[in-house]
Amino acid sequence: MAYIFYPGCASEATGKASFISFEAVVKALGMDVHGEIPDWNCCGATLVANAIGDFAQQAIAARNLALAEKAGKDIVVACSSCYLNLAWTNEKMKIDSKFNSQINEALAAGGLSYGASLQVRHLIDVLINEVGLDKIRERTIKPLEGLKVACYSGCQTVRAIRRPDFDDVEYPVMLDRLVEALGATPVPFPLAARCCGGSQQFTNPELIYDLTGKVLDCAAENGADVIVTPCPMCALNTDAFQEKIAKLNKKKYDMPVLFVTQLMGVAFDLKPKDLALQYNIVSPYKKLAKYGVKK
């Protein structure tokens, strides 16, 4: 199946490592991804609807759908928040005819239209259900034996379309299957689809300290060596806030946080520049040394 990629704004900043390792993994697996949606715009994240309402945000998100439809390719998304906005808008375009015609009225003001012909799919969905675990197992050159992983799917990843999507909405398991295929061991992780606090770092920081703290505690208590996630917001909060939260909670976590494609890159024995580990804040080198990862 042919796809076009929606990188999302985080791919330029907090989630740069996700973007770099995504491109490398796509190449390593020979996936049919035809670059980025030309001139894609911000999906609105979890914030724009607060300022302009759901409908106007969804019209803005729909510009990306229209541009991808022109290119004639289904969309693959790695960021959970982008996935929510694009997949949910797409779903509504398919099931709600009034919504569809009003969004198209808005798009027409910019000379665009969207016939709701595309699928929007999350990277994990495509990896499991299109590429397949067999192929991922086959491509694994350095099985990550003995590496214990807390598989943090994130909240919006599995609840974007508000009904069972490619995984369970409360206790997702697909990321665990993927990590197993790389030879690593997923640990029990009941908070896999719980919230890290999202984008309230400045507006309600105590919420981040509390919720991300719970996620870190849960990973540590279950013996994880690393946390793996597809979501740039989960990654940012668990990685960048880890030391601050450790101090507040009088704990030590030493819990590197990797994007799923970074971990795949390690198992696929990709080049250091493809792993993009230099962006990680909690250093992952010690825990990954036995799989041949060097600075």
């Binding site: 330029e12 409908f55 808005a106 003001a109 910019g110």
Partner: peptide, 20 residues
């Protein structure tokens, strides 16, 4: 980076806000 067609985005937003 910025997008190229900012005018298009703005028009879509303005129309959507009016419809809302």
């Amino acid at each position: 980076k910025t997008i190229k067609n900012k005018g298009q985005l703005k028009k879509i937003y303005e129309k959507a806000a009016a419809l809302a």
